[in-house]
Write a protein that binds this DNA or RNA. Structure first.
Lengths: 213, 213
DNA sequence: GGGGTCATGTAATAGGTTACATGATTCT
DNA sequence: AGAATCATGTAACCTATTACATGACCCC
């Protein structure tokens, strides 16, 4: 697995938790949630148990004891094996050092732009800009708040990264919308032609309600 | 499905192909490849057939004829139904207008930074910057080349988007590396403490081979 | 005329997600 | 005391990916 299994980052998070101390799965989940890691790594209980199993099969972690507190269901506590320690370091190093191809939904959408008429695209992009600005405000304030509580930046770098990426996307969309309006994308007439727009409406002043630029 | 099925963008690409004309699956794939859409939408044959089936079950597309050319295997040609046309517009509009939460591998990596010692992280980030710069050169040249062939920008917006995002990430990583070096991330001693670094090596001039800043 | 590669698709497997289950704790 | 929520996990389902299959074309 050690090579094939590097798909789902939740497995990496599990290794990271266990590097700190042995835990049972549910505790890993709450730990991650407390630290806000679920904002960066998709987490749900179902997958968690699947992933833990698969890490065990791969010999990276090991069930240490099954304790039972009160009459709750048994909880299996897992510990990190040496192979797991190595895999953690290796995998994380790869994530940091090697830019990976990611398929984002927005990129998919952009690649199919010609399927919609330009006026519609313009309106949609304006909607996105507004939504992005909102999201940015929220993320920035969460981040600032954490820092004011004394959290060292080291533990919220992901958050700064998300903000930086959103800002960049916003700038891009802004520019793109401008380029569509001014026609500097080229092929505007062709584009409009695909979608038999009823009148020769050349979008002279027809702007939607957004005025973000 | 119309709501639950909006996970895999390949289905959207299928709808988009069929908006143009009826096709059999293999032809959709080659069409997408020709236009470089597989750079933006993950495509492999196995998934393609699964996705087409599921679109058919959902009543968005329909098998029109099964032709047979020479003694090749039968090919089923699919056509877009009205429900499919609507779904295409709806789905694409959502992708464009609504920023979605995406989990990227790099963000996952960043969120686990404290698992590695700061010196190692620094080296890894420098590797990433070098690799990103290479990737940027390649993508820019592909894009420019296409434009010089007369392709209107409209058909390569995704590519410009990828470039913009990579540039932004590069800038972020650059800044982050600086912040680690100068200690403005806070908690550097703590951080180093987690990983009992053998000597009190304070990374005085110990830089790796990259000199990107 | 035999070995590769293209064109086209199917089947088996693995991975992940949703839905469900059950006892404990807390709130009103 | 009953309702809601937390803590903990299992099982069934669905999706996607990999591996495989098969005839045709092409090149030497």
């Amino acid at each position: 697995m050690t090579k094939s299994k590097r798909s789902n980052a939740l497995a990496l998070a599990v290794l990271a938790c266990l590097q700190e101390r042995a835990m049972h799965p549910y505790e890993m989940a709450t730990t991650m949630r407390q630290r806000g890691k679920h904002e960066s790594i998709k987490l749900n209980y179902g997958s968690l148990y699947t992933v833990v199993q698969s890490l065990e099969r791969a010999g990276l972690i090991e069930a240490q004891e099954t304790e039972r507190e009160g009459r709750r269901p048994e909880r299996t506590v897992y510990g990190l094996l040496d192979a797991g320690r190595i895999e953690l370091i290796d995998w994380l190093s790869e994530l940091l050092s090697t830019p990976a191809k990611e398929f984002t939904q927005f990129e998919a959408g952009l690649s199919l732009l010609p399927c919609l008429p330009p006026e519609d695209v313009l309106a949609l992009l304006h909607d996105r800009m507004a939504a992005t600005e909102l999201a940015l405000v929220a993320e920035r304030s969460v981040c600032d708040h954490a820092y004011q509580q004394g959290l060292p930046r080291l533990f919220a770098v992901e958050s700064e990264y998300r903000i930086a990426m959103r800002e960049a996307e916003l700038a891009f969309v802004h520019q793109l919308a401008d380029d569509i309006r001014t026609g500097s994308l080229g092929g505007l007439e062709e584009w409009r032609g695909y979608h038999s727009a009823p009148p020769p409406l050349q979008l002279p002043e027809a702007r939607s309600e957004e005025a973000t630029e």
